[in-house]
Design a protein around this nucleic acid. Structure first.
Lengths: 337, 337
DNA sequence: AACAATCATCGATGCGCTTCGATGCAGCGG
DNA sequence: CCGCTGCATCGAAGCGCATCGATGATTGTT
C-alpha cells in the first residue's frame, strides 16, 4: 500500500472513472453522485493517494502555502516569536495551509522571490517598522499580506496586534489607582526605537498620555537586553527621578532580572516598588515574584493573522486593522502605596 | 517590468532561443555558448523572470524545500529552538532551499502527508525521543531525514547534536578541579525524562560517570520550569545532600532564577556555591552573575543538519552521526573552594 | 576533401493536476 | 413520442518546466 507514488490517474483507474471525476470529487466543484464519490474515496484510501502539491499548484494557481516572515535576529523576545509562529502554523493547518518560514534578513528580495516563483499564496509579516521598505512591495505584489504589529501609520495592509497604547495606559492607570505618583517606563533597547518600531512607540505614547491625564510624573529610558543593561536603566531612572515607585517594564528579556536589580538599589518588590509589565501570561508567572501584567496574546494574534489572510484569499479586499484589547492580571508585583 | 507573470517561454522569446535552451542555461546541465547564455541572462533580468516553483517541482521531481519539524509546545527552551530554526533557514537559503515549518503535533501523519504530496525533499526533525514513532516512518519514506538530537539508540538516520554526555563530564571535571566534592545536577522537567528524551539522559549519564570517575558524591533531581519548581528542586537537593557546593544546572528556563533561589537558601554564588550550566553562550552572559557554561551551539547544529540533508540529497547514502565537542567558558559563577 | 567526432541548440514529450466544453442519459411537458 | 432541461461524467487542453533524442554547425582527422 502506498509504496510507489500513486497519482490521480491510478485512483481514477481503480475507481473506474475519469481523472476529472476524481478531481471533482476532491474539490467538490461539480456535483458527483454519491455512489461514484464513494468508489473514488475508497480507491483513494486503499491506494493512499495524496495530490501532488507541485502539480496542484501549477494547475490550480494556488499553493496552499502561507509565507511567514520572521525577524530572526530580533530584539523581540524569542519565546514570543515562537508562540506567534506556532499559532500561525497550527491555525494554518486547520485550513489546509502549510507555512513557509522566511526571514527578515532576506528582506524585499525574499518577498519578491517567493511571490514571483509562486511559492506562497499570502504573506504574514512580523515586526514591520515605520517606513519599512517591504510595505510598498507587499502592496504591489498581487499577494495578500497581513502584518503582525502596526507600522507607523496605516499602509493599506491588514494588521493585527495587541493594543499596546491601551495596554500601557491600563497599567499606568492601575499604578495610579494604587497611589503611585512617580512612574518610570523601562522600554526596549534603544535600537528598537531608532528603527521606529511600532509597538515600542505605542507603548511610549500610551504611557505618556495616560500619565499626563493622571497628572503624575514620569520618566522613560530604553534598556539593553542584559542584566547590566537593566542595571544601567534602573540607575538612570533613580538618579533622575529618585522617588519613582511605579515601574512599567516593557522588555521581556530582562524581566527575570528586574526584582534582583531593584533589590540591588535597595528597593524590594512590591514593598518599595510596584512593577507592571507587558508579556505573555505564562512568562509573568514563572518568577520569584509573579508580575502584574497585561498579557501578550501571541497565540490569538497569530490565529487572527491567518484568518485575515484566509479572508483575503477568499476574495475579501477590505483591509482590516485589529487591535486586541488589553487584559490585565494582578499578581504579586504590585501593592497599594 | 515584471508586472504580469513571466514564464520561461517569454524569456525564450525575448532571447530568441528555445525554452529548453533557457532551461539549460539555468541548470547548467548542458553546455551553452557564452553568447546565448548572456542573451538569456539579460532577458531574464529585464523580464524579472523567476521559475515557477510548482512547475519546477513537477517536472524536476524536487521541490527545493526542506521540512523542518519543530516541537512547538516544547519543554525545550524556545530561544534555543528559534536559533536552530534560524540557522536551518539561513543555511538552507544559501543552497537555494526554502524551509517548510512543521510541528511535532502533526506527528507521523504530517510526515506522511508532506512526503506523499511532495512538499519537501528532506526532513530535519528536532527533539526525537527514544522509540519515537516517527523514526520508522522516516526510514520508510524515501526522503532523507536528519535528526537534531540523538534518539535513544542509533536508528539508521543521520543525527547531529552537542555531545551532552561529554559536556556534562567536562563541567563536572571543572567543578572537581575547583575542589568541589559534592555535586548536584538540576535537570529538565520530569516529563522530559519520562519521554526518554536523548539529551537529558545523556547529560545524566555523563554527569554520573564523570562524578564516579572523580569519586565525588552526587545527587540528581528534575526541575519544573518555574521559579517555584527550581525552589523545590534546590530544597530537595539541600535536604538530601546539605553539603552540596557544585551545581550543574541543565534547564534553560530557570537559569535566570538560579542565583536568587540559592540566595534564598543562604548560598551566594560563587561564594558558597559554584554553578555551571549548558546553554547558549549569549544566555550565560546576560545575568547578574555570568554563568560558567558549556555553549549550546544551536547555530552550528542547525547548519550541520542542513548540510547533512544536502549531502543525502546529492546521493550520499551513508548515515552519519556527529556529536559536537563541548566548549566550556569560565565566567563568574564558579570559584575555587 | 571526405568523414567522424564534438558542440550548441531545438522540438517534442510528459510530470500530475484543474478546468472547460462536450456528451450521454434520465425525466419532463406537450 | 419528440425535443428539452438538468444532472453526472468524460476527454482534452494547458499550467510552466526539465529532459531526451535529434539536428545542424564546427572542428579535427587522415
Amino acid at each position: 500500500m502506498g509504496e510507489t507514488v500513486v497519482s490521480i490517474g491510478d485512483v481514477a483507474k481503480a475507481a473506474e472513472v475519469s481523472t476529472s471525476t476524481v478531481s471533482y470529487v476532491l474539490s467538490g466543484k461539480r456535483p458527483i453522485s454519491k455512489e461514484t464519490a464513494d468508489r473514488v474515496h475508497r480507491a483513494i484510501r486503499e491506494l493512499g493517494y495524496r495530490p501532488n502539491a507541485g502539480a496542484r499548484a501549477l494547475a490550480g494557481g494556488r499553493t496552499n502555502v502561507i509565507g511567514l516572515v520572521v525577524p530572526l535576529r530580533a530584539d523581540l523576545s524569542l519565546p514570543v516569536l515562537m508562540e506567534f509562529a506556532a499559532a500561525v502554523v497550527t491555525r494554518g493547518r486547520q485550513s489546509e495551509y502549510d507555512v513557509l518560514l522566511l526571514t527578515h534578513e532576506e528582506g524585499v528580495a525574499g518577498l519578491r522571490r517567493v511571490a514571483a516563483s509562486s511559492l506562497a499564496d499570502a504573506f504574514i509579516v512580523m515586526d514591520v517598522q515605520a517606513d519599512d521598505p517591504r510595505v510598498p512591495i507587499l502592496r504591489a505584489l498581487h499577494v495578500p499580506a497581513v502584518l503582525i504589529g502596526l507600522p507607523g501609520r496605516p499602509v493599506g495592509l491588514s494588521c493585527v496586534d495587541l493594543d499596546f497604547a491601551a495596554s500601557a495606559a491600563l497599567l499606568v492607570d492601575h499604578l495610579v489607582d494604587l497611589g503611585h505618583r512617580s512612574l518610570a517606563l523601562i522600554g526596549s533597547p534603544a535600537a528598537v526605537y531608532d528603527r521606529h518600531t511600532g509597538y515600542a512607540q505605542r507603548v511610549l505614547s500610551g504611557f505618556g498620555s495616560a500619565a499626563q491625564r493622571a497628572k503624575v510624573t514620569t520618566i522613560w529610558t530604553p534598556c539593553e537586553p542584559s542584566f547590566d543593561g537593566l542595571r544601567r536603566a534602573v540607575a538612570d531612572v533613580l538618579s533622575r527621578q529618585p522617588d519613582t515607585t511605579g515601574w512599567l517594564l516593557h522588555n521581556e528579556s530582562v524581566l527575570p532580572s528586574m526584582v534582583a536589580v531593584l533589590q540591588e538599589f535597595g528597593r524590594s518588590v512590591p514593598g518599595d516598588a510596584s512593577v507592571v509589565t507587558i508579556c505573555p501570561d505564562d512568562m509573568a508567572d514563572t518568577h520569584a515574584v509573579a508580575f502584574t501584567n497585561v498579557g501578550l496574546p501571541a497565540n490569538d494574534v497569530g490565529e487572527i493573522a491567518v484568518e485575515m489572510a484566509l479572508r483575503h484569499l477568499e476574495g475579501a479586499s477590505a483591509v482590516e486593522t485589529r487591535l486586541l484589547a488589553p487584559v490585565m492580571t494582578e499578581r504579586d508585583s504590585t501593592r497599594r502605596l
